[in-house]
Design a protein around this nucleic acid. Structure first.
Lengths: 164, 164
DNA sequence: AATGTAGGTTCTGTTTGGGAACTTAGTCAA
DNA sequence: TTGACTAAGTTCCCAAACAGAACCTACATT
């Protein structure tokens, strides 16, 4: 079964993972948010093979997450910039940063700190409820079927014993 | 070069991606947050091969993200539960859900809606600044070197022309 | 003329993933 | 008391993806 055919595809996490769900892609995007834009810079910064980098960038452009913009004509040169769709991935990158800082830091502390320009404070952005403003805890959230749900994907235990 | 040896490893995103940065792992975790706990249930829900699932669960247990708990002695049976470290991944899963809903929904709307129990509203959780409460925009954040930064990993353009 | 730079492509093994069958240990129903 | 079923894996073989390195093209610099 190909990954793109899994039942999970009616799940938004699966659709997101189908685009950015590999190790290199997420690192390319992290660097894009740090204003890296050129092939050589991605390559030397990440240590990814040129072949894979070319493929990943192509895929991200096809998906509308990066755009390939000419910055020089002779010889032709291009850079890769985040689109609006690409910039919308920021919360994912920030959430991964925060988790890595909190749980995988090896005791050295965060390699990068984030400063919120509007208030000037160094912060760890957190998820909150846009209605009541409270910080989100997993236990406080319940999942409801939405308009895009396909029945085959309903999640939960199948009845046990007595015919499927 | 092995992925674990890349310069990116001093980056928290890279450390996070080294653990959850593949398509199946993130889907396993998404299902874990939807209260799926057993081998058979992960397998049939995701369509992942049993072989890969066994490997991914083992890895997640080793990393302290899931724990393997016996729920029956004869025959021995186990289930996989999120640890504290695992539950801390929730913002990543939610951020991926939100992005998939917004940008990859194929016009059908979200398959799952989230309700915030404390206020009762159906919401899309958003990243906000814990100091001033404003919603986070990428343009509003600037990255500063932190205590865990290694010099070799500094991000940005190398000087061009005239000796590296 | 030689060297450097940017952005790739090609080649060759190795690693990982997919699909399906098999195993183990116990339970249930006829 | 045989036969089917369940849960949680493991084993096998083949296909796809990846790593490492060299190569290519077009222009610019010294």
């Amino acid at each position: 079964m190909k990954w793109s055919e899994t039942g999970g595809m009616s799940c938004s996490v699966a659709r997101t993972a189908s685009v950015i769900g590999d190790r290199w892609t997420i690192l390319i995007l992290r660097n894009a948010f740090l204003r890296i834009r050129r092939f050589e810079d991605f390559q030397s910064n990440l240590g990814i093979t040129r072949h894979l980098l070319a493929g990943r960038l192509k895929r991200l452009v096809e998906e509308g997450i990066l755009e390939r913009v000419s910055y020089q004509d002779a010889p032709p040169r291009f850079e890769y910039r985040l689109t609006l769709k690409g910039r919308a991935l920021y919360p994912i990158v920030v959430a991964m940063t925060a988790w890595g800082d909190a749980w995988m830091d090896g005791g050295k502390g965060a390699p990068l700190l984030l400063q919120h320009k509007s208030c000037g404070k160094v912060v760890t952005p957190q998820l909150s409820c846009p209605e009541c403003g409270e910080a989100i805890e997993p236990q406080q959230m319940s999942a409801l079927p939405g308009p895009g749900l396909m029945l085959a994907d309903a999640v939960g235990r199948k009845p046990r014993r007595k015919k499927a």
